[in-house]
Design a protein around this nucleic acid. Structure first.
Lengths: 209, 209, 209, 209
DNA sequence: TATGAATGAGAGTTCATTCAT
DNA sequence: AATGAATGAACTCTCATTCAT
């Protein structure tokens, strides 16, 4: 982090800071009112800067939303990445714990700042390209989860007959569902129950033994 | 169906037909270009009617999208409703078959007409009210699935310790995920594998025995 | 009146009647909501006829308002004409009585049906041509009043030094003022006082003797 | 006047100036073509500005006409106010002179700029609210004139039996009539004759002595 | 003849973007 | 570098008028 601010003139630092603030303000506006209902003037007003200034930092409205989305996605991916180490897990117990940590990390991101899921939810309505990007994002998570499953199958603590990729998609679908559910009922206790249910389904299924 | 066209004058039938056509054209436009990128003129042009004519059938732009979404949702709910009879299922095998049928019905709706998932995906970006409606829609499916689970627990072919409601949400999340996945890769074979994976996770979980 | 309906086929009578009804409905609409706020559909709806039918009786919106105004003006002029006979008056007393009768006739027209002054008041805002017509109407009344004055001067019961035409305009201005005042406070007693005041000013002026 | 431009930046002065110009352009357009026939584009085109610019200065079309009317009325009231001092008059001769001055002031306003009476004449056709405002305006002048009469009666140079308020309305009616007459024939000589006739009627009436 | 479905010119209004200050 | 005044493309919506039924 410090690396990015080192070796910069004060002016450059100031510029970078304003850029930051604009992205943050835009993030809030887009999440709260949606992309189309947000005007450049709204973003500028929130910061107390002239709306002409906006265009010194970003090409146009599409440009800023691109940055906002990208940053948000990165924040999520980063958070997941911290817990992400398929190789480190060697037992079902370990995997279960890992899943729990990942779930907790996601819950933190989405529940702590409800603007995140709100933004992502409405992002698909911005335009065709963004709709595609949101689908990409969901797609991107498949190999991530698949890697875990693959590893588990190889080590023998997951079913040998798992159809890894589709299974990964199914699991990610449950996570997506929990994010949406969290938007309507963000109570942590509720989230915890949902998280537990997901893990129960994952490991043991719903069928009576 | 015939009931709705009986006892109508030719003019009334023509009007109803035009209404239908407008909804269909709007449906296509909204799905293809998104709500905000679609102008009333686009919808009218697609039908070869004057754009003033549009306003003889619908109040305004918001009105038409409301109708389009409502119809689409109804179509889905109807399709699910046909397969929907928790009481009729008495064994795990029966439930498994039922799930398969529901999955197939959904796949048909979403794969046959990719505009359906495209529309729903972008709908959340229309405005706050529609975002809420889309979340409601997802919420609405929870008790539907929960009813099945409840029934299964009562009859003993599902785990007695199931936390029914969150589990229903988790399962619906997998379905949602499969819909999204279908948008990127609508190949029926791919869909079938995903559907199978969902059922595998559902019934047996992923853990090795 | 009967003359106009004699010798007509039943169809022609029916047409004339519908024409009448349309003019009446338009009159009411224009007076109540103003010309621009009134749609052809409003007029047709008030009569319970299709708005296409309107165009079988009148060229266009401008045409109908023309007829409405013309009729209204005629009604006023007719009412005044009945009392109008400068030659019949030979004394100041007679003139005074005459003036009183004219005032009463005007009061009847404007107070009995407040739509009349309302219509005329807003008519000037219809377009340039109508503005001109309204001014014409006011102008038209000048020679009418002037004829009386002329007569009175000739017969010696009015001041010999009267500048007849401007004086006629001044008197008509008072009448106009009383019409406007009647719109705000249509109480008959109020109208009577105003009418009396006009006559008092007219005959004796306001200066103490 | 200078007070309003002092202490302003050059930009603020420029803005105020543009505002002024828009009001003036709108004033001309409304007077010449009428409110409904005038488009925002007409006003903007007359100034050579983009029609979007208009909306930086005024809320909407209704807003500008409100300002135009208000300003015009204020200009008239101000002009009258300068001559307005009932207390200062103590004799019939003084009153007569005063009336002459007021008449001259009005004539100046209405004849110098024929757009003024044209605007006011058509204003009543804008909508219900404006119709009411125009009637209010006429009403407002009654107590003004009445104050003079009252004063004159008290001091004895006006008839003791004057019914003050209705008489004031009658007099104002004559003034209104002269304004309308001036629209058709704005020749100053004509106006002067009318003005003289009004005063003649006012003070001495039309009856021969 | 009566109807009202269809039409499109045209209006008001918004707002992303530019650019002179 | 920051500003916000200016701009006009673009959009939604209205309604007088036409014309096929």
């Amino acid at each position: 982090m410090t690396a990015t601010t080192e070796g910069l003139t004060r002016l450059e630092r100031r510029k970078a800071e304003t850029r930051r603030e604009i992205i943050d303000a835009a993030f809030t506006c887009f999440a709260e009112q949606g992309y189309h209902a947000t005007g450049i003037a709204d973003i500028a007003a929130r910061l107390g800067i002239g709306h002409g200034t906006f265009y010194r930092y970003f090409e146009n409205k599409r440009d800023i939303v691109e940055h906002v989305i990208t940053e948000t996605v990165e924040r999520i991916v980063d958070a997941l990445g911290e817990e992400n180490a398929p190789e480190a897990v060697t037992t079902l117990e370990g995997y279960r714990a890992q899943t729990e940590r990942i779930g907790a990390a996601l819950a933190r991101i989405f529940s702590d700042d409800p603007r995140v899921p709100q933004l992502l939810l409405s992002a698909a309505g911005i335009d065709d390209a963004m709709r595609e990007r949101m689908l990409d994002l969901f797609d991107t998570t498949t190999p991530l989860t698949a890697a875990y499953l693959e590893h588990g199958v190889r080590l023998g603590y997951l079913r040998p007959d798992l159809d890894v990729e589709p299974t990964a998609q199914a699991i990610n679908g449950m996570i997506l569902g929990s994010v949406l559910a969290g938007l309507r009922d963000p109570a942590p206790e509720r989230q915890a129950r949902l998280s537990a249910a997901i893990r129960a389904v994952m490991y043991d299924g719903i069928a009576a033994r």
